[in-house]
Design a protein around this nucleic acid. Structure first.
Lengths: 223, 223
DNA sequence: TCCCGTCTAGACATCTCTGTCCGGACTCCG
DNA sequence: CGGAGTCCGGACAGAGATGTCTAGACGGGA
């Protein structure tokens, strides 16, 4: 024992750390930090050393949880697919009394950042431009999502080609909205959505569906 | 003289090179290759070694033309600004008999990839998300472009606030269109533009302006 | 108390990219 | 012919990132 007499904790000052209470870093911690960096800085900046510094832990810890950086990126993609694509599929498969209510269900998962993470979706889309395998996964995800939306319209009696067209417009519109990074107040966004409902269903929006959407948004604002 | 008896040219087989005829690599060659990589792979992949390999030249040549990689990126930004922002400014300042013809001038520079490079604009916009200084430059460029479009509407009698609104819709719409990476046939794109003309000018499109735009597009297709 | 599984620090080799330096080939021009 | 200027290849050092290895701290169970 020479100069180091305080080997107790590997974290000097846990109070100023966002993970107060944790003494150990979990695999999910690595994944969450990696996801944050992916969204804010892009995949090129997802570096083991940088993630470790943010977690105030050395790189060695990383290699306990992940075989390599490549495996981390793979896990990141799996999480993205589980979260975003599955959310859309679930929303489209939800039972609904009318097509208007069904479209409302579709919009709901985009309104709640806990359900669909648009920043992550955008980051993966950007990542795909530079990685063929990611490109394949996101292309497949787009196909899967579109198929789910198309099936939703078909379930309410729209003929296949019509359902396909409406699904594409609906899905692409959401992509474009997020791509522009508009920051619109929730109220005017709701009004726009009601306008969309008329366009996609071809009739006046179901008042009960609109009311449900409004209360859903209100809950989002309250919490 | 040991094993190398053919020191004549530094390029083994100039025939299969895109720069046939060039024996020397120019500063513009480096810039062009760098721009291509920036557009297709992002700024992180703009590496001196990779650019040199594509030019079939060693990195030493690079440091003859550029002080450092940072200076190359700076030159890339200067070229982007000279080309894209200046193109919009010039198009908006062009004399026109009516606001409809003026808006046609605006659309023209987006239809011709030699005037406005949308891939480059998109790549720089993406780069700006990870570099504060680039972010400042692109924010300033957006302001400058919007001011030019606003001035165009004001020149034709629109009151300032109205001109500002129309300019924003017009400019943001172009951004969104390119962001979605739609590949629409030129014919249907022209029809859409005529529809926009009604919206932005509030009256039927100037037939002469539309005819000029059509012949401009035809020239683009012919060459 | 002691041992074992869990988790991390630090040292190390390796790779990639950057930037510098030197020398040589080529061109132009006197 | 020859010297200066232009341009490039190759070697070198340094920084930073990845992945491996070993020793050791911690906690829980026999």
């Amino acid at each position: 024992m020479a100069d180091r007499a305080t080997p107790l904790l590997h974290r000097d000052d846990p109070s100023k750390d966002p993970l107060v209470g944790h003494v150990k870093v979990t695999r999910d911690d690595w994944l969450n930090v990696a996801r944050d960096v992916l969204v804010s800085d892009g995949v090129a900046d997802v570096k083991v050393l940088a993630l470790g510094q943010r977690l105030e832990v050395s790189r060695s810890s990383f290699y306990w949880y992940f075989k390599s950086r490549k495996h981390l990126l793979e896990a990141l993609l799996d999480g993205w697919e589980d979260r975003n694509t599955q959310t859309i599929i679930d929303a489209c498969a939800l039972p609904a009394p009318s097509i208007g209510a069904a479209v409302c269900n579709f919009f709901r998962c985009f309104l709640d950042p806990d359900l669909f993470d648009q920043g992550l979706d955008f980051a993966v889309r950007e990542w795909s431009r530079r990685d063929g395998r990611v490109r394949q996964r996101i292309d497949a995800a787009d196909q899967t999502r579109l198929a789910a939306v198309t099936e939703m319209f078909q379930r309410f009696g729209y003929p296949p080609s019509d359902a396909d067209t409406r699904a594409r417009i609906l899905y692409f519109m959401q992509l474009g909205y997020h791509a522009l990074e508009l920051r619109e107040p929730m109220d005017s966004r709701l009004e726009r959505i009601e306008g969309y409902l008329r366009g996609f269903t071809g009739k006046e929006p179901d008042p009960r569906a609109v009311a449900a959407l409004r209360s859903f948004v209100k809950d989002l604002g309250d919490r």
